Amino acid sequence: MALASNTADTAASAVRTDVQNQVTQSVTALDQMKEILINHGPDIIYAVVIFIIGLYIAKGLKNIAVRMMTHANYDHTVITFVSQLVYYAMMAIVLLSALNKAGIPTDSFLAAFGAFGLAVGLALQNNLSNFASGLLILIFKPFKAGDWVSINDVSGSIKGIQMLNTAIITKDNRTVFIPNSVITSTKVTNSSYQQDRYIEFLFDIGYQNDHHHAIAVLQDIFRSDPRILNNDTLEIGIKEFADSSVRIVAYPQVHGDDYLPVFYDTMSRVKDRFDSEGIDIPFPQRVVYVQAPAPATEEKETEKKDPAN
């Protein structure tokens, strides 16, 4: 009986010890949690606030990117890709900032992101340059879809600004893709940027023609065209005396959409009027003078006598 009693007391004591250890551990854990909340509670709250505010900022930047690219006539696939890229890049920055504010070390994360970014940058160096140039085109808007431009001897209408290049439709209906980095580093001529345009006409007449009469004929042609906007202040006169002609220049002003129709119509009407008025349109000429050869001189003796003779 005594042995059974001792065994029961030992088991009860072990149970009490186990319960006390569990209670002690629980109290210790609660004390540690309380200490963490007291010491790091404000930082955790700040981290949550940073995350929430950053989330709204990331969504706002994503919406701005979508609006800009939609306005610039980007392809839907490109809009989705770029907007998601902007969103997740911003969220990565927000997450690292929140973790750092909460007291969690982020050095390893930054090192990993840095190595990843360096590898991607080296692999896609040219593409990233084109992508950044595309963003600059979107921001500064040197042209938009539908504008008529000239870039590196390529002239045509802008079809669309893509992620890495810009598509141009030429006059003969070819589509030319020019890298965006080339566009931002070369001269771009936008013929649709201004609402009105000046047409530079250059007409050659013969030296034997009366230039006053030719200018009067040209002014009459321009005044009869209602599409010309500056008839009262039209700039016209002799530009230079060329090798075989007198060159008359004129600068009529027209709406952008009337540029080519006015140009073609005017050239045709000038040819008809010049023919009817007897005004010559000379072709390049060159006068060649041929000089007669000098009289032949007496023939000199060329053979020498043999010294032996």
Rank of each mutant, 00 (worst) to 15 (best):
Q208C: 01
P282T: 04
D31P: 00
L96A: 10
M90L: 13
D43K: 11
N230D: 05
G54V: 05
N73K: 13
D225Q: 06
A296Y: 03
I38L: 15
T184E: 04
T70D: 15
V86P: 05
Q20K: 15
M1Y: 05
T80C: 03
Y251S: 11
S192E: 07
L124D: 07
G41K: 05
V182G: 00
I36F: 13
I178T: 09
T28M: 10
Q219Y: 02
G134E: 05
I104Y: 10
N230E: 07
A2H: 08
N21C: 01
D31K: 14
I183W: 04
Q22T: 11
I57H: 01
L37D: 03
D280G: 03
L202D: 07
L96N: 08
K59H: 08
G121H: 04
D31M: 09
P261L: 02
P295G: 07
P105A: 02
S150N: 15
T297C: 01
A242M: 09
K300C: 01
Y56S: 12
G206V: 04
G41E: 02
S224N: 12
I93E: 12
A12S: 10
A2T: 09
H211L: 03
I158N: 06
S244P: 00
L229V: 02
T189G: 01
P142L: 12
P42Q: 03
P42G: 00
G160S: 15
I205H: 02
S224W: 01
L110V: 13
N39E: 09
I57Q: 06
S181V: 01
G54W: 02
V262P: 03
I64H: 07
Y46R: 13
I238G: 11
Y87M: 11
A98P: 05
I238H: 07
L37H: 08
I57G: 01
M68D: 11
V27N: 12
L55C: 11
T80L: 13
S129Y: 11
G206K: 09
M163P: 00
T10Q: 11
I281D: 03
R273D: 10
L128M: 13
P284K: 08
P105L: 06
A89F: 15
S129F: 11
A2Q: 13
I57R: 00
G237N: 03
T233F: 11
R197K: 12
L118N: 04
V82F: 15
T233E: 15
S268N: 13
Q194W: 10
A29E: 12
A294V: 14
V270N: 01
K62S: 15
S245F: 09
I137H: 06
I44Q: 04
S276W: 00
A250E: 09
V48P: 00
L136M: 15
G146R: 05
F203I: 06
I50S: 06
Q32R: 07
